[in-house]
Every structure is written in structure tokens, then in C-alpha cells.
Amino acid sequence: MIRNVQISDAQQILDIYNYYVVNTVITFDIEAVSLKSFTEKIKIISLDYPFIVYEEHNEILGYAYGSRFRPKPAYNHTVESTIYIKQGQHGKQIGTELYKELLQLLKQDNFHMVLGVLTLPNEASVKLHEKFGFKQVAYLKEAGFKFENWQDVGFYQLTF
């Protein structure tokens, strides 16, 4: 079931996220995030943007949200999308279902453009974005440094 995030979900969502922080280059956070700061992040984001979770048998298996792209007012109709699936739950269409719902909510909220910002290579995420019509519009070589290596970033754009 897909539903809106609740503050009580914070620990489960954080566990999903911190796996990626500690074990992958998918996010550019370097150290595990604290529950306090992540809870605050959920509160702030969900005030203005959709933040949804995929729950099955009281366990959160993934989450997705929109967030501010840049702080200048001309960007108010552009949103950055984020999606994470719990390790071991890939290949079950959870990401597809979450993204379908998130994009529908963003469109209803009159956002004009959605940007997916992906560490590359990341075949699964690229396929997910392209499945929904996102097109790669930028490639930033060596944009981030994590695990003693430079990481590339791709910007994928969907316009409603």
C-alpha cells in the first residue's frame, strides 16, 4: 500500500536511507544520518511536497518524495524527485508504483518540471526514470567525491 509519510515512519525510512549512505555512492551523504535530523527533514519536506511510502505488513519497503530544486523563486515550479527502495526488495515493481504515484501527485500540485539527479552509472535508476519519460539533459563528470573516487552525476528531466 502506498500512503503519505508519517513522522512515526522516520526510523524505518532512515534505515533504508542509511544503508545507501554507508554502502553505496547513490547518495552523496558520507556519514549515516541521525534520526533527529532525518525526522526534521521529513517534517520540512512534507509541508510543501508529496512524501509517500510503500508499506507492506507494517514494514516500509520504499519511499519517494519531491523537494525544492533551488531556492530562487523562478524555480518554484521545478521539483527534484527522490526515491529509495529497501535493500533486498528490488525487482518487485515497488519503485515503479511509488514513482507513478509521486509523479501524479506532483502533477496535481501544478509542478511543471521534475528532475531526477542520479549518480552514474546506475542502470536500475536510469531505466526507472526513462520508463516514465525522463530524458537525460546533463552529465556532470566527477561532480562528487565519495569512497575515495570521483562520482559522475546525470540530470534527468520530465516536463508535464
Rank of each mutant, 00 (worst) to 15 (best):
F134L: 12
Y65H: 13
I45N: 08
H77G: 12
G116I: 09
Y20S: 05
I26L: 12
L120W: 09
K146E: 02
I13N: 02
E101K: 12
K86H: 02
N122S: 09
E101D: 11
T159Q: 13
L35N: 06
F134D: 08
R68M: 15
L105Y: 04
E56M: 06
I94L: 02
G62D: 00
I45L: 09
V5T: 11
T119Y: 08
L35Y: 10
F145H: 08
Q12M: 07
D152F: 05
I16H: 01
H90V: 12
T82D: 05
S46Q: 15
V33F: 09
F160N: 14
F38T: 04
L128D: 04
T96L: 10
A32G: 13
L158V: 06
E59P: 00
N110G: 11
E31S: 11
I52S: 00
G95L: 00
Y54D: 07
F132G: 03
I2G: 00
K100R: 15
Y54E: 04
F134Q: 08
F145D: 01
Y17Q: 02
R3M: 00
E55D: 07
L61P: 00
G62I: 00
L120S: 06
F69P: 09
V79Y: 06
K41I: 07
E59K: 11
V126I: 15
Y19Q: 01
K141W: 04
N149S: 15
P50R: 07
E97N: 13
E31V: 11
K141R: 10
I13T: 05
V5E: 00
Y63C: 00
L102C: 01
F155G: 10
I13R: 03
L140V: 08
T159C: 12
F155L: 15
E56I: 03
E142I: 04
D48N: 15
F132T: 07
H77V: 13
Y84H: 03
L105N: 09
A124L: 05
Y139A: 07
S67Q: 13
Y99N: 06
T96K: 11
R70M: 14
L118V: 14
L128S: 04
F147R: 14
L140D: 07
T27F: 08
G66L: 07
Y17M: 05
E31F: 08
P71Q: 14
Q104V: 04
W150V: 03
E101Q: 11
T119W: 06
N58C: 06
G95R: 01
I7N: 09
I7P: 09
G116E: 06
A143E: 11
